[in-house]
Amino acid sequence: MKFLQSLDNVATPANGWAATIGAMVAPWFQYLYGSNRQDILVVLLFMIALDWVTGIHAAKKDKTYSSEYGLGRIPRTLFLVTLPALANLLDRVMGTPGFLFFGVTFGLIYHTWTSLTANAHRAGWPIPKSIVSLVGSEIKAKAERAARKETK
């Protein structure tokens, strides 16, 4: 009897709607990104989130942050998230299982890693010098962009 009472918290209309939406959306994600690729997509999303966090802190530190700049990052993020789906669909068309998908996704992860590392350095967060030297050109580019924004 106690077991059935505990189901009252699980069998709610909100959970039913969430399960229904999930059942309708999940096949589309599998179609767009391929099956068993959740881990690499989570890594990419995690990197993008960290890039946003470090970018906001770096921009606030050098006083170049504006809501206009932040809103401009939304289309960029959508592009970064949809590019692996396009690569997966091209893999399907060309018969190259995963070649483009993994190449594009790992390339985006590396690019995002350099961006978030440079942002963290600009924000003044502790980054090992060996890592800073790896992303030195990105740090320089971001500093130059910030300097141009300050002069406007």
Rank of each mutant, 00 (worst) to 15 (best):
residue 1 M to K: 06
residue 2 K to P: 06
residue 2 K to C: 07
residue 3 F to N: 13
residue 6 S to Y: 02
residue 8 D to T: 14
residue 8 D to F: 13
residue 16 G to R: 08
residue 16 G to I: 06
residue 17 W to I: 15
residue 18 A to K: 13
residue 19 A to S: 11
residue 20 T to R: 09
residue 23 A to P: 05
residue 24 M to I: 14
residue 25 V to Q: 04
residue 25 V to W: 00
residue 28 W to Q: 12
residue 29 F to W: 08
residue 32 L to F: 15
residue 34 G to Y: 00
residue 34 G to T: 06
residue 35 S to F: 11
residue 37 R to Q: 08
residue 41 L to H: 04
residue 42 V to I: 14
residue 42 V to T: 10
residue 42 V to E: 00
residue 42 V to M: 12
residue 42 V to R: 04
residue 43 V to R: 02
residue 46 F to S: 15
residue 48 I to Y: 02
residue 48 I to A: 06
residue 51 D to Q: 11
residue 53 V to K: 10
residue 55 G to T: 06
residue 60 K to R: 12
residue 61 K to M: 10
residue 61 K to L: 11
residue 63 K to F: 02
residue 64 T to V: 08
residue 64 T to M: 03
residue 64 T to L: 06
residue 64 T to A: 07
residue 68 E to H: 11
residue 69 Y to S: 15
residue 70 G to R: 07
residue 71 L to K: 12
residue 72 G to E: 08
residue 74 I to T: 05
residue 76 R to H: 13
residue 76 R to N: 08
residue 76 R to Y: 08
residue 76 R to P: 00
residue 77 T to C: 05
residue 78 L to G: 08
residue 82 T to D: 00
residue 83 L to S: 03
residue 84 P to I: 07
residue 84 P to Q: 02
residue 88 N to A: 09
residue 93 V to C: 00
residue 94 M to R: 08
residue 97 P to F: 01
residue 97 P to M: 02
residue 97 P to E: 01
residue 97 P to V: 02
residue 99 F to S: 08
residue 99 F to T: 12
residue 100 L to C: 02
residue 100 L to K: 01
residue 102 F to H: 06
residue 107 G to T: 02
residue 108 L to G: 02
residue 111 H to A: 15
residue 111 H to Y: 11
residue 111 H to I: 14
residue 114 T to Y: 03
residue 115 S to R: 10
residue 116 L to G: 06
residue 117 T to K: 03
residue 119 N to S: 15
residue 120 A to S: 07
residue 121 H to R: 01
residue 123 A to V: 05
residue 123 A to R: 00
residue 123 A to F: 05
residue 125 W to M: 12
residue 128 P to K: 05
residue 129 K to D: 15
residue 130 S to H: 08
residue 130 S to M: 10
residue 131 I to H: 03
residue 132 V to N: 03
residue 133 S to R: 09
residue 134 L to S: 07
residue 135 V to K: 00
residue 138 E to L: 00
residue 139 I to C: 05
residue 139 I to T: 01
residue 139 I to S: 00
residue 141 A to K: 11
residue 142 K to H: 15
residue 142 K to I: 09
residue 143 A to N: 15
residue 147 A to T: 12
residue 147 A to D: 15
residue 147 A to Q: 10
residue 148 R to E: 15
residue 148 R to S: 15
residue 148 R to W: 10
residue 150 E to A: 15
residue 150 E to D: 06
residue 152 K to S: 14
